[in-house]
Simulated scan of single mutants.
Amino acid sequence: MALRAPLQNPSKPLRPKHPLVSSFRSRSLIPMARQTRWLPSIAASLHHDAAHRDEVLRAARGSLGHCLSETHLEITVPGLTSKARGKVRDVYDGGDYLVLVTTDRQSAFDRVLASIPFKGQCGIYPQVLNETSLWWFNMTQHITPNAVVSTPDKNVTIAKKCSVFPVEFVVRGFVTGSTDTSLWTVYNKGMRNYCGNDLPDGMVKNQKLPGNIITPTTKGVDHDVPVSPEEIIKLGLMTQDEFDEVSSKALKLFAYGQQVALENGLLLVDTKYEFGKGPDGKILLVDEVHTPDSSRYWIADSYEERFAAGLEPENVDKEFLRLWFKNHCNPYEDKVLPDAPEELVCELAWRYIFLFEKITRKKFKLPETEEQIHDRISKNVSHALSCL
């Protein structure tokens, strides 16, 4: 019998709108011309449980030297063959299934920047990352089916093997970002048509867009490459029907994510989705959903005040780590990058847990004992595969 993730009612309707949704949308955003600057501020709401936060930070500091950067399940698990090393995950071929293992690696700018405690050694972060994603997979089945088969370990997701479309669907609600392909970077350089989207003049960084847009990218040799819908069809990356179906699902997923986030005091700013075709030809949502690895989140209550003052929004994702590297090196061209400060690395571990607790409304508990994580993963994956 296959091990399967617990699924909630796929026909579950959208939640009733929180009062903050209407009040936020009714306010005007002031398109002031001004320079924004990065301030390493900590949102007051990130201190919602000071004792819990201090506990996580202490545990993170104590785990900095024990991060998991690599796995070798092809040696320890029968039936696993080839291994692909992604920026964050190790992906193993298990025949009809893929085994995706989350490591401690933290990526941005198309390279690994740091190792974050709890992505590996004690299994904390991967549980947060995987549990956050699984929660969203369960909550969005009324919009689209997904490829998840089971989650036999804190670090592991087993998924149906799909023919993945070579296009990432990046959905954006704000003009922001710090990478070369971010909407603010290209807009600030004068581009007014991006990936087939016409953008109005006079916008400033972190301003809300008139409506959500999709800015697709394809995988290049070194960096993601922005592409328009017309180019996607012309290059044969997707058919028109496939693109239309996936685009519709991506926009619905994002709108639902924005609503749920706002109900919990957050703004879902942008995210990326990946889709593929399963063995039966059905289009499935793959990879992760609305995690802080793939998404940008801001604190809702302070957004407008900070926007008007020309300050960066209070974020709950890895953007502040990106900004630190942008201010201290050239993360695209420098061969050797500086080490991320320990306090930033530990703060990032806390923010991922904070986001999990805000979105799911569940309390996250630190493990009481250390485990031999590779042995544990090998045993759990072996058992799960034997049941499929």
Rank of each mutant, 00 (worst) to 15 (best):
V167N: 02
I213G: 06
T217P: 07
I213T: 10
V149T: 05
Q141S: 08
M191A: 13
S178V: 15
T215F: 06
I143N: 01
T185L: 08
F118H: 15
V164K: 11
G177R: 04
S133W: 03
K160P: 00
N146L: 00
N197H: 10
D198K: 13
T185D: 08
D198Y: 08
W135K: 01
G177E: 07
K205D: 12
P210W: 04
K189P: 08
T179K: 11
V167Y: 04
T132S: 13
G173P: 06
A159I: 14
T218C: 12
G196E: 08
V148A: 04
V186W: 03
F137V: 01
N146M: 00
V128I: 15
P126N: 15
K119A: 12
M191I: 12
N146A: 00
N146S: 05
F137S: 01
N206Q: 13
W136I: 02
R192S: 05
V164F: 04
N146W: 00
P145K: 08
W136N: 04
Y125A: 13
E168T: 01
E131C: 10
I124D: 15
A159V: 15
P200C: 08
S182G: 11
Y194R: 01
K219V: 11
G211F: 12
W184G: 09
W136E: 04
G196I: 07
M139P: 02
V204I: 14
T157R: 10
L134G: 03
G120I: 11
Y187F: 10
T215Q: 06
K160D: 06
G123N: 11
L129M: 14
T157Q: 12
T151L: 09
T218A: 07
P145F: 02
V170I: 15
P216S: 05
I143W: 02
P152D: 05
A147W: 00
V148H: 00
G190E: 14
K208S: 06
D153W: 10
Q141N: 07
N193C: 12
L199W: 00
G177K: 04
T157S: 10
S163V: 09
S133Y: 03
T157A: 09
T176W: 05
K160F: 05
V175D: 06
W135R: 01
L209G: 08
T140P: 00
R192I: 03
W184T: 09
Y125F: 13
G177I: 07
S133F: 01
K205P: 09
H142P: 00
T157N: 12
G177Q: 07
V167C: 05
I158S: 01
T215R: 06
I124A: 15
